[in-house]
Amino acid sequence: MSQTRFRSLLKELTKGFIRENPILVIMLGLCATLACSTSATDAFGMGLAFSFVMLGSNIVVAIIRRVVPSQIRIPVFITVISTFVTIVDYTLKAYFPALSQSLGVYVPLIVVNCIVMARAEAYSSKNTVMASLMDGIGMGIGFTLIITLIGTIREVIGNGTMFGHQVMPARYQPFMIFILPPGAFLVIGFLMALHRKFMITFYESHR
């Protein structure tokens, strides 16, 4: 593999982490982000489930992109995505019942998570399988990182625990609002603001 090709693939992989992060920049799929980030464990589980679907659908869409007529691409994409979601749902139910119970309806709802659809439409239907694979992994990691971060912040402030372990002193009175839906909006808002601030200074110094 030539040097430049490798570079560009690496770029496809890393863009999802920060620069084109699905939550902070693309800002799609916030429904799952809000609902499944009440605890770090749930958030991490959601991140992994999402990553699997993202990766699978990106690869399959890239493989079949030349044979699918553009008029029916949306129903085809939805079929592909929902197949992967159902696989994840059944697998979680069978082998990780506790996680499946706490994520509840949000696993089947990955079907309508717009990031998966957006990546299929905007990226993998126009790019090679290898690049789509990288894009899928990158988006998955970016989503998992940020949703886990949000989950950790909300759990520590709102419940005094991290991944289920007590981290705050026993006298700490948790701010309940961080576990409730408004807390999710607050945390995501602050993270977006921080991210923008960081990105602006980063790009100015790298111009």
């Binding site: 029916i72 085809v76 079929t79």
Partner: peptide, 11 residues
């Protein structure tokens, strides 16, 4: 025909 067959195969 192409559309129907592609959708049929995918499903």
């Amino acid at each position: 025909i192409r559309m129907v067959s592609v959708l049929f195969i995918v499903c």
